[in-house]
């Protein structure tokens, strides 16, 4: 009975926790960039203010029902993948779906957003989506290959079991230590996955007017913000679980997310923007061969 109550509490509060962590990470990101640019920067919880403001807009325009549903798909797809990611104290759902499921669940938000933006009938949005999907192809391929390598090595596709295996021997069994090539390749892919510079061509405000967000205002933009913040948590946690040995407690997890995000932000704040085809070429020239070499190494029994 106790476990059932615990489960319900987790199910209710897990998205809220992820959102809160996302708010702080997002605020930290903006603060970090500001400091690199020698500015003071906004508040630490600036994304929270933004969400409140956006959700309280009095008028909102929609371009049709698919526009509405797409935003729901966006938020729900991210929450869905959140539930299947094991974190300290909560891995109930990871027994019902493995990493392959998570990868596919992560496609729901992309597809949902793509459909809604399509209905807004704005070419800037469509161009943004076209770029987003092409970029998706760029970064997902090396990322999936690194995961395949990890799964093959450990003989399981379950994320929870991967975490357990990595935790068994301390730092020495972390994915990034045992398979640095895969870890580095996935780090590149993560940069693209999080749409941080130099892989930020999807938004490109000066070029295509923020692309997918062009026609999103008010609560639509607010929901995109909510999704973005949860997604920060989701993507960083996936990497932490795959290569940084997951975490035994929340403090450890948050610390790892913080370090990882700092790494990504420091790349983000000093780079310009790659063109779509250049970004894809980069993804296939650096991370993909790295991952491939790593996987061949695993197949040959090295490392």
């Amino acid at each position: 009975m106790n476990s059932v109550i615990g489960l319900v509490v987790w199910i209710v509060f897990y998205p809220l926790i992820a959102f809160t962590v996302g708010v702080f990470l997002g605020g930290y990101g903006r603060k970090f960039t500001a400091r690199v640019q020698r500015r003071v920067g906004p508040s630490w919880i600036q994304p929270f203010f933004d969400v409140i403001k956006l959700m309280r807009k009095r008028t909102n325009i929609s371009h049709g029902y698919m526009h509405d549903i797409s935003l729901m798909m966006l938020v729900s797809g991210t929450m869905l993948s959140l539930y299947f990611i094991p974190v300290p104290g909560f891995h109930y759902f990871s027994q019902f779906g493995d990493f392959v499921v998570i990868i596919y669940l992560l496609l729901i938000p992309s597809l949902g957003m793509a459909l809604g933006v399509g209905e807004t009938a704005n070419p800037n949005g469509s161009i943004g989506i076209s770029r987003a999907l092409q970029m998706l192809f760029g970064y997902e391929v090396p990322f999936v290959l690194t995961f395949i390598g990890m799964a093959m090595l450990n003989g399981t596709t379950s994320m929870y079991e991967l975490v357990q295996i990595q935790q068994s021997g301390g730092i020495a069994t972390w994915g990034i230590v045992t398979h640095p090539l895969l870890g580095i390749a996935a780090l590149f892919a993560l940069q693209g996955m999080m749409n941080e510079k130099p892989f930020e061509v999807i938004i490109a405000p000066h070029e295509i007017a923020t692309g997918p967000m062009t026609e999103m205002g008010g609560k639509y933009m607010g929901m995109m913000f909510i999704q973005h913040l949860i997604n920060l948590f989701v993507e960083l946690t996936i990497y932490a679980n795959l290569f940084l040995g997951g975490a035994k407690n929340w403090f450890e997890l948050l610390f790892k997310l913080f370090v990882l995000f700092t790494l990504i932000l420091s790349v983000n704040s000093v780079f310009g923007r790659f063109r779509t085809d250049d970004a894809m070429r980069f993804m296939w020239k650096i991370p993909l061969p790295l991952a491939a070499i790593g996987v061949v190494g695993i197949m040959l029994g090295i490392g």
């Binding site: 640019q37 920067g41 000066h206 967000m213 205002g217 008010g218 933009m221």
Partner: peptide, 20 residues
């Protein structure tokens, strides 16, 4: 907007489209 006066201190950011 930039380092001298830094508007983002107050949460004010430039945005691109009127919808936002």
């Amino acid at each position: 907007m930039t380092a001298r006066f830094d508007m983002e201190r107050f949460g004010i950011m430039p945005m691109v489209t009127p919808r936002q």
